[in-house]
Simulated assay, not measured.
Amino acid sequence: MPTPIPIKGRGASSHLPGRFETRTSEAVDDGWMAEEGEEFAAPRLRTDVRAETARSIISRNASPDVGFDQSVNPYRGCEHGCSYCFARPTHAYLNLSPGLDFETKIFAKTNAAELLRKELARPGYVVKPIALGINTDAYQPIERKLGITRQLIEVMLETRHPFSLITKNALVERDIDLLAPLAEQRLVSVHFSVTSLDPHLSAKLEPRASAPHARLRAMRRLHEAGIPVGVMVAPVIPWINDAELEAVLEAAREAGARSAGYVLLRLPYEVAPLFREWLQAHHPQRAEHVMSTINQLRGGKDYDGGFGKRMRGEGVYAQLLSRRFALARKRLGFNASREQWPWLDCSRFVAPMPPRKPSPQGELFT
């Protein structure tokens, strides 16, 4: 197998076919060399954003190891290009590659705010905090132009609906004018995902996300605006960024974070071969050692999706990591439990008016 070649600005190195594909293609060197000119060079990979008219917008789950019951994702696919993203396999359902397609073919749910308002207006709707941007980052680069996430937050403010969000993009600063009044009513909390403080490593792991110092700056500005902020060290990757756990927590605490968590690297379905490609492209000397440790954490496999184990792993390394995190959290004064984190108030919710059905007789006044 040839060594994968990193693609500038992208996390994946290939169009790995999804698990539902019936046919696959494989690149073969036919002997022609492209070094002499660009005639045979691979075309530059551009991001293709496609408008999608979604049929529903609130996703619900009953997973016992996540802290939310319902979520909203304004986009499918993510241009951040995180090599480890657990959501990459979802592109296989679209007959697209969880590899490069996931980060270059983005689907924008342009009717997301309209759908959210409609779903919140249903008579039987039960108010529970919504997690905004879980499968893919709600503040990925295209949000700067489309503003779908901002439209959703405007609906949250209008209806006083509680929600949380997690991001690795400093673009969240743009919406402080909406988030601050929501925070005054205990209706929002924001977590930043920080994988590394090393900008060079971050650029390899998550090439189009904000640099680590930009995330910390945004965290500080939200904190100064009165918005509760926290940090997620996610994912922790053995022998790649695990040594930075305490340093990331310290930097986040200094920037205003009052809540902290971590998640061990997850490699479901197509993510495992994609991450192996990433290791071979960027850290070939450590690749075997990294995957050996991951297998030890996952019962001899690349991944174990069992509840209670998928976020933390098992075995000696997992126990050591958990102990390190607990000690650092206590030393730095992070909230030790969900009960100490500012709770989100569900009692303020005001249901929007349901949309009027068009009359067959038309409108008397226009």
Rank of each mutant, 00 (worst) to 15 (best):
N169A: 13
D175L: 08
A255D: 09
A247R: 13
P207V: 05
V229R: 05
H282D: 11
I240S: 03
L182C: 11
A203K: 13
L165T: 15
E173N: 14
A234I: 10
E288H: 05
L205V: 06
K204S: 11
R217Y: 03
R266W: 01
P212M: 13
L171Q: 14
A203F: 00
L274S: 01
V190T: 09
R276C: 12
L205Q: 14
A255W: 00
F275P: 01
A281K: 05
E206F: 00
L279E: 07
L279F: 02
A209L: 03
H289P: 03
L205M: 15
Q296D: 09
R286S: 11
D177H: 09
L245Q: 11
H283R: 14
R208G: 00
A281D: 09
T167V: 09
T195E: 07
L216M: 09
G230S: 03
E173S: 14
K204R: 14
M219S: 09
A272C: 03
V233F: 15
R220P: 03
L249Y: 00
G226D: 06
A180L: 06
G230L: 04
Q285R: 14
Q296I: 00
M232K: 10
S189E: 11
E206P: 07
E250K: 14
E244S: 05
H223Y: 02
S189R: 15
V236K: 04
T195W: 01
M232N: 13
E270R: 04
L279K: 13
P228Q: 07
A211Q: 15
E173V: 12
G226M: 01
D175H: 05
S292L: 12
Q285N: 12
P238S: 11
Y262E: 10
R258Y: 03
I237H: 08
D177T: 07
Y269L: 13
S164T: 15
L265G: 08
N169E: 12
P181D: 14
R266H: 09
A255P: 01
M291V: 10
V263G: 09
H200Y: 10
M232I: 11
L179G: 05
A209E: 06
T293K: 12
A281F: 00
E224H: 03
E184I: 00
S210H: 01
G256E: 02
I227S: 04
G226F: 00
P228R: 07
S189L: 08
A257F: 00
L264K: 06
A225P: 05
M232D: 07
L171S: 09
L187A: 10
S164H: 12
A260E: 13
H200F: 02
L249G: 02
A287M: 06
L249P: 01
M219G: 10
A260I: 06
V236C: 08
A203I: 06
E277C: 03
L249C: 07
